[in-house]
Design a protein around this nucleic acid. Structure first.
Lengths: 250, 250
DNA sequence: TCCATGTTTGACCAAATGGTCCAAGTTCGA
DNA sequence: TCGAACTTGGACCATTTGGTCAAACATGGA
């Protein structure tokens, strides 16, 4: 078990700014974060230099934490290791993020918008082939530029998504259903072959995320990484071609 | 760190049968296992009832370990938890498998053959469409019947494949290259469209494994699981159709 | 039947780890 | 300039956990 249960009622002595409640169901936080994922305005409160610096440090910690969590997993990562990666002491890290779990939640929350965004970008009015190609492109860019985010979510899925399940069942399902409808409409309008919409979406996710999540394997077998411009282009072309036209000779 | 380094030289007092050496590079073991993956004969030594029972118990432990490791990861799983899942005491588990790492290695080793098998099943002589469909089918069956194996390997990839890298670079790459050549030949012979062979293989892996690794998400969004016969068939059809013919209308 | 060999477990140990505390700096703003 | 509030980290604590050990318990074969 990660979080030891306090025998005695611990006095809420927390001093840190914005001590995140390690509420049993941080899941709720994630759902809210997902819902407001599109909103551009992050926060309106005017900040003094103190608060701003604090915010920056908090972000730096989050960045370090993402890197470590994405590689080692929640259990494999030690707070000490994350602190070290962030260049501060463990105690100091715990000053900004009240607990390892809270930190993990914050990291997840931070990646959520990025992770959910690409799907919400096409509508019935778009040209199917273009829209699909664009979705593939967007997800692939994400796999190249933020592979840790992809890995973190993959890790979370493999765990059974204890924290994410509500997000999946709520906000994500909403977008998903909407896009399924869009694809369905395309098919009905004869603009697309008789594909199965849900599976098409799964396919695009699987194909693109694979290059982040299984990067080691891709690298071991092909010798390349998405960071190689040529390989990136080649991959995007290959996936797009496959999804749009398949492998069978016409 | 998972394995505390013994300060004093610990006398090799191990009594358990077949104490697996927790050699720094258990990776070598995996490579050997992978190479002999095809061999049917498991072992020829005639066994007394004692040894046979031991073997059975060892296998039971492996099964329990697979289940736990695949969900919790190497670090998240406690030996105690695995022992409990296997219905024995921790000390007893450690009698059969000398250390957590050795157990993990054994689990990985056990899953390896299953994991590597499907790819090695097609040759240039086969009909491309049929061979590809068969590969998809085989991998999907694996995702349905042994999702834990898929998850375990996914977990390993996400960690950066510390143990598997040699397998990837060795035996797997060998098969991979061979199959790339086969696909290349098909393309050259005009039996297949101008696909990129490596990416086609990656695609098939990604598409099929997705349903095991991201099962929670698939379930949350579609409400179905591969265990549902109808969904299984539908999925297989969808993936096969996509890979062979794509989504674009002809 | 008897015991050598294999099996099982509770007790125990040391290291690692999440988290707390407090004393010693910093720094902003009045 | 001065102090109240914010930061920082070393020391410390309790729990978890991988692993050991010795003593009790089976059991198959002579």
């Amino acid at each position: 078990m990660t979080a030891p249960v306090a025998k005695t009622v611990k006095p809420p002595r927390k001093t840190g700014p914005r001590a995140v409640a390690k509420d049993a169901s941080g899941a709720r936080k994630l759902v809210k974060a997902a819902q407001s994922a599109g909103d551009g305005a992050p926060s309106e409160t005017p900040k003094g230099p103190r608060a701003k610096a604090g915010e920056a440090r908090k972000a730096a910690i989050l960045k370090a934490a993402l890197a470590v969590f994405a590689r080692q997993g929640l259990d494999g990562a030690s707070v000490e290791a994350i602190a070290q990666a962030a260049g501060i002491s463990k105690a100091n890290l715990l000053y900004y993020h009240p607990s390892k779990d809270a930190l993990y939640l914050a990291v997840l929350e931070q990646g959520l918008a990025l992770w959910l965004a690409p799907l919400s970008r096409f509508t019935e009015a778009d040209d199917p082939a273009e829209a699909i190609a664009a979705l593939i492109g967007a997800k692939l860019v994400l796999s190249r530029d933020h592979p840790e985010v992809s890995r973190l979510f993959a890790l979370e899925m493999l765990r059974g998504a204890p924290l994410l399940k509500p997000v999946l069942a709520g906000p994500l399902k909403a977008v998903f259903d909407a896009k399924v409808a869009v694809i369905q409409a395309w098919v009905a309008a004869g603009k697309l072959s008789r594909v199965d919409p849900p599976h098409l979406i799964f396919a695009i996710w699987a194909l693109t995320q694979h290059y982040a999540d299984f990067a080691v394997q891709v690298r071991a077998l092909s010798g390349k990484t998405l960071s190689d411009k040529a390989f990136m282009d080649e991959t995007q072309a290959a996936i797009t071609a496959l999804v749009l036209d398949g492998a069978r000779r016409r």
